[in-house]
Design a protein around this nucleic acid. Sequence first.
DNA 1: TTTAAGAGAGGTTTGATCCT
DNA 2: AGGATCAAACCTCTCTTAAA
Length: 290
Amino acid sequence: MIAVKKTANMKPVFAKILEDIENQVFCTRITDGPYFATEFHFHKECQINYVLESEGKRIIGDSVGHFTSDELTLLGSDLPHVWYNDRDYAKSITLFFDPDRVLSILSQFGPACKFETLFKAAKRGIKYSGTTKTAISKLLLDIPGQEGITKIISLLNILEILTQAENVEFLASNGYTNSYHAKDNDRVDRVFKFVFSNFAGDIQLEEAAAIANMHKHAFCRYFKERTRRTFVQFVNEVRIGHACKLIAEGETNVSSLAYDCGYNSLSNFNKFFRKIKGMSPRNYMNELNG
DNA sequence: TTTAAGAGAGGTTTGATCCT
DNA sequence: AGGATCAAACCTCTCTTAAA
């Protein structure tokens, strides 16, 4: 279901980007392969991410969501994130920049308050749509072929457009603060991958705890501390999120939806669907499809 | 076919405490 | 700080039943 492949060079790839940015105001990275080559992580640099082709699940801060091709997001400093594709291809372009450095440059030309505000808002992760998305994605894709000052102008253009965007969607919850530590990344990534790969079947707490190398009691506490939700809540959010994706793709049978998402009883599926979405599955279908 | 409520069993989460 | 252990509280999960 989810591509859970892993290569030995994942970390060096990311470390290289951070090295590159040491010497520049910003840098871009193009991913074009069977999967997104980073694990769950966070860093000081902001990033603008445009998914060209792929779909799957993503975690940004405390949000668990589904992404598809043509998705544009801005992630602020220290916001934990990961994209797990469940297709065998992943194509995206990402622009990394150090917000402090960008602000210090911009402030030499006048007040940079609106950019400061943007970077602060980005700590929740922002998803863009409409004309903003169209304009930014085009500018982003042009950057790799540009040099020197033209490149800088593109970045400034992008940031300017982002400050003017309307109807944006915030991803992490209001007031979200990162409670992960850098050393959590591996462990948490293993657990997330486990859930995303197995949510359609049975998932036992003890198995997840073992994957995290912890006793189940310690794991419960650890998981809640980092994700702000219990392990069972997380699994249900992933399952109901998947149900919504299937509904969006045209599934009309509530019963098969329940079993496809890992529920062994219709009654339990209905219960959690209502709890998470605030309405019954049938209502949700009607609202979505008119 | 779908939704919802209730009950019992058993799984999950949490508080307190101890250990490293 | 972070994890282990135990006990107790809390909550899911599944099944049943009934109704829309």
